[in-house]
């Protein structure tokens, strides 16, 4: 078994991309959108939440056919049931969230200025369980992904609205996520940006590569390979592993920061999860 290498060459950060270290999140977002507008002049902004299906009409037709009878229906049902089932103390998830947890997906991840940390929807679900003396759920797939999917489904059509408040800790978390995104890593020495910015719209072997804008709008995602809904962090784990880098723990500060950055870059796009991907 070859050792997993985790080589992060900060110097090798992909250039020619919007990432000037001192840029504000607002500036980054503006540049990122401008970049993709130039790269894909015919793709309307609203389409980016559809990933590769915004770029490939053939694959899109197949995807739409699948969505007619969505394979995640069972997971979604399970999530709804769990969401509404009272804890042992009689309370429900609704008690932990603004608006009873309905129609709020677009605000996550959010920065908790009291605790000084990024709160993802999944971490908020587990915090809710903890405060109601329930065991935490495992991230990835299963009940956690199903509950998250149900909550996303109640927010469909609402626009991603991620805020980086004027707090140095929030800004640091954003920068950490951005750093992860642009840093070369793994034995194969590839950055997220290599595949999802520079090579978006190109094929890596038979796979079309999605643009990073919109990455965070539609999770959890049902993939036939796993036969279940999976969270965004599970996808991060997969993409880290592919380049033969040591993946981080799901819901680690590193992946929370990465999700914070990617979600901020998805601002203005409609929540459209859960959905399916190859």
């Amino acid at each position: 078994m070859r050792k997993l290498l985790s080589i992060v060459t900060v110097l090798g950060i992909a250039s020619a991309l919007p990432h000037a270290a001192a840029a504000s999140p607002e500036q980054d977002l503006k540049e990122m959108r401008a970049h993709f507008k130039k790269q894909f002049p015919n793709v309307p902004f609203e389409e980016y939440g559809n990933g590769v299906y915004a770029l490939d009409p053939g694959a899109r037709a197949q995807w739409e056919a699948i969505e007619d009878f969505p394979p995640y229906e069972l997971g979604l049902e399970n999530g709804k049931k769990l969401f509404n089932t009272p804890f042992k103390n009689g309370k429900t998830y609704a008690s932990c969230f603004p608006n009873g947890g309905i129609g709020i997906r677009q605000n996550y991840p959010m920065f908790d200025t009291k605790k000084g940390e990024v709160v993802t929807l999944e971490s908020a679900i587990n915090a809710c369980r903890k405060s109601n003396t329930e065991e935490p759920l495992k991230d990835g797939k299963g009940d956690m992904a199903d509950i998250s999917a149900y909550m996303a489904s109640t927010s469909r059509g609402m626009k991603m609205h991620i805020v980086v408040p004027n707090d140095p800790r929030a800004r640091a978390a954003y920068e950490r996520g951005k750093q992860h995104f642009y840093a070369k890593r793994g034995q194969l020495n590839l950055a997220c940006a290599d595949c999802h910015i520079s090579s978006a719209g190109k094929h890596i072997r038979a796979d079309l590569l999605s643009p990073m804008i919109g990455h965070a709008t539609h999770f959890p995602v049902y993939r036939s390979v796993s036969g279940a809904l999976g969270t965004l962090h599970a996808r991060y784990e997969g993409c880290n592993t592919q380049v033969r880098a040591q993946p981080f723990k799901l819901q680690s500060d590193e992946y929370k920061a990465l999700e914070y950055f990617e979600s901020y870059m998805s601002n203005g796009l409609e929540v459209n999860g859960p959905t399916t991907r190859k």
Binding site: M1, R2, L4, I204, R205, D207, R223, V225, R244, K278
Partner: peptide
């Protein structure tokens, strides 16, 4: 090719760790 599973080709692309 778009029918082919991403996982397969991603795994193929980056190779197994073994």
């Amino acid at each position: 090719t778009s029918i082919l599973s991403t996982a397969t080709s991603v795994a193929a692309l980056l190779g197994s760790l073994m």
